[in-house]
């Protein structure tokens, strides 16, 4: 019997400090047993449990794309016991990863459609995974227009800045990067909150367009009416939730919203699905 609680042992290969407040770091992990990498086959939108031996586990969205081989990447915000311990670790350290867990963005349903990705703050991790995956030549041809609206408090708080710039230069993806305030004079992109930029830049909703929304509750709260106004059907607004989790496999009982477990039945839900469940997230 396979033990779903068993973390695959991994080695930290690289640690990248992402933001100017140093609270967000991206960790690149390599599996000690290459066979485990195959078992960890994932799809953008899924998450894993990072297991710092001796401290505990935290559920974190997978930031790398399945098209990137030989490693997995997670971007972690420093908030609690485990994430703090993780931030103190260095390349070469051994720890564990469990997963992949949860469902993913509905790539099959969205095949042939336009996709608008709306993200804010450090909730951009699985969105990075999605964008890298979408831009892979094998996948890009299967989807229509791609818009990305991504905002952070300031330019220094944007994740994956080099990649954002690279995507800006491409013509097969429409990037709308924004910051709440630009504190550097050379900022040449948008200034303003994500909902406002969405209203100005996102294409109108129709049967062929899906929106993927992932961000802090306040952003979601104000983005939703904008998408309504643009005519997006609630069945085509895709959201990714976060709740406190332990097991990640729908057993420990804490992350439920109604009868659904965010860890197993989610974290990805359509707005339509969410409207039928109690708002406990």
């Amino acid at each position: 019997m396979q033990n779903p609680y068993f973390p695959y042992p991994v080695r930290i290969d690289e640690v990248i400090t992402e933001t100017e407040d140093k609270n967000l770091k991206t960790f690149k992990f390599v599996f000690l047993d290459p066979g485990d990498e195959k078992k960890f086959a994932y799809t953008p939108g899924q998450f894993g449990e990072l297991s710092v031996t001796g401290k505990g586990e935290i559920p974190i969205g997978i930031a790398s794309s399945p098209t990137e081989k030989g490693f997995v990447k997670f971007t972690v915000n420093k908030v609690g016991v485990v994430s703090t311990a993780l931030h103190n670790m260095v390349p070469g350290d051994i720890m564990g990863i469990r997963g992949p867990m949860g469902n993913w963005y509905p790539w099959e349903r969205m095949r042939g459609k336009n996709i608008v990705i709306v993200g804010g703050g450090f909730a951009f991790t699985t969105l990075r995974s999605s964008i890298v995956w979408l831009l892979d030549p094998a996948n890009r041809k299967n989807y229509g227009d791609i818009h990305v609206i991504y905002g952070a408090r300031s330019p220094g708080m944007l994740l994956y800045r080099d990649e954002l710039m690279e995507w800006e230069r491409r013509d097969d993806i429409h990037m709308h990067i924004t910051v709440d305030r630009a504190d550097t004079p050379d900022w040449k992109y948008n200034v303003g909150f994500v909902p406002a930029v969405t209203e100005a830049k996102a294409p109108p909703g129709d049967a062929d367009t899906f929106a993927i929304v992932c961000g802090p509750p306040i952003m979601i709260k104000f983005t939703q009416p904008v998408l309504d106004k643009l005519g997006y059907s609630h069945d085509q607004i895709i959201m990714s939730l976060e709740n406190r989790m332990k097991c990640g496999i729908g057993m420990c009982g804490r992350c439920n919203i109604g009868m659904e477990f965010v860890c197993k039945d989610g974290p990805v839900f359509t707005l339509n699905q969410l409207k039928k469940t109690p708002r406990e997230y």
Partner: peptide
């Protein structure tokens, strides 16, 4: 009741 916590 089956809910549990995982602790190191």
């Amino acid at each position: 009741c089956w809910c549990f916590d995982i602790q190191d």
